[in-house]
């Protein structure tokens, strides 16, 4: 019985830990590298300012 409770507790901790890391993914990590915009096709005539 004790083993079962310990196994369930450990399992919960592992799943919880996994979910926590999933939700704490790093966001913008650019340090000088720069991805193109998701909104515009770049052109020399562009007047967008984002």
């Amino acid at each position: 019985m004790k083993k079962m409770i310990a196994a369930i507790a450990l399992g919960t901790l592992l799943v919880g830990g996994f979910l926590f890391t999933q939700d704490n993914q790093p966001t913008d990590v650019a340090t000088g590298e720069s991805e193109p915009s998701i909104l515009k096709a770049m052109s020399i005539n562009t007047s967008f300012d984002f």
Binding site: G32, E33, S34, P36, M42, S43, I44, T46
Partner: peptide, 17 residues
Amino acid sequence: LNKSKQVIQLTNQNLGY
């Protein structure tokens, strides 16, 4: 080819990096 300054300079930025 498409005379896109932004593409050229974004490439330079990333090549520099």
